[in-house]
């Protein structure tokens, strides 16, 4: 049932909801994403951090009930810090990300369709070309595997989730007070 019809249809359906939500949030727009990166309007961060709070409370509850098995990505400093910074360059230069660009295409934005989309596919192919060298070199530097923050701190997941939630709520309060 790996890539069966039902699986693919669920993917399509979830994607329709996800794209709908991103468009309603305004993050399919270049202007909204650039305003976030220029620290003028925190819409992107508000959406992401709200999703993280709601998502983590649900996911860790489901995991405790034995309904799901979470699968945190493994990584390393060489992989996540350097890859993350390279991604950040593209994030600001293009003004969309790989997810929101799909929404931008649906929104009718042609710089996303003709420019950005082609670039993302090219960039992915480029990484595939140099991957054999990277995978035995820089991607292994500072490897920490599929470590989670609770494992790192040697505490129960809820000891991380509850303070994190409180911190994010305080941040939202401050952002709203500042009017950004």
């Amino acid at each position: 049932m790996k890539n069966g019809k039902t699986t693919l249809l669920w993917g399509l359906g979830f994607g329709i909801v996800f794209g709908f939500l991103l468009q309603k949030g305004g993050v399919t727009k270049y202007d909204v994403i650039i305003a976030q990166l220029l620290l003028e309007d925190f819409t992107v961060l508000k959406i992401m951090l709200t999703a993280v709070v709601v998502g983590s409370i649900g996911l860790f509850t489901f995991q405790q009930l034995g309904w799901i098995q979470l699968n945190p990505k493994s990584g390393s400093w060489g992989q996540n810090a350097i890859g993350g910074l390279l991604f950040g360059v593209g994030f600001a230069v293009l003004g969309y990300c790989p997810g929101t660009i799909a929404g931008a295409i649906g929104n009718g934005y042609l710089d996303a369709t003709v420019g950005g989309l082609v670039g993302i596919v090219l960039g992915s192919g480029l990484l595939a070309a140099v991957y054999p060298r990277l995978s035995v070199g820089i991607l292994t530097k500072g490897d920490f595997g599929d470590l989670t923050v609770p494992e790192l701190l040697k505490v129960n997941a809820w000891i991380v989730i509850l303070p994190l939630t409180a911190l994010i709520l305080v941040l939202f309060y401050l952002l709203e007070r500042a009017g950004v």
């Binding site: 990505k73 990584g75 992989q79 996540n80 350097i82 890859g83 993350g84 910074l85 390279l86 991604f87 950040g88 360059v89 593209g90 994030f91 600001a92 230069v93 293009l94 003004g95 990300c97 790989p98 660009i101 710089d111 996303a112 003709v114 420019g115 950005g116 989309l117 082609v118 670039g119 993302i120 596919v121 090219l122 960039g123 992915s124 192919g125 480029l126 990484l127 595939a128 990277l134 991607l139």
Partner: peptide, 17 residues
């Protein structure tokens, strides 16, 4: 510019996983 930004995004996202 969008194309160049896209190349960085594609390359960086796959680098970072």
């Amino acid at each position: 510019v969008a194309l160049i930004g896209g190349v960085f995004l594609g390359f960086g996202s796959r680098w970072a996983g």
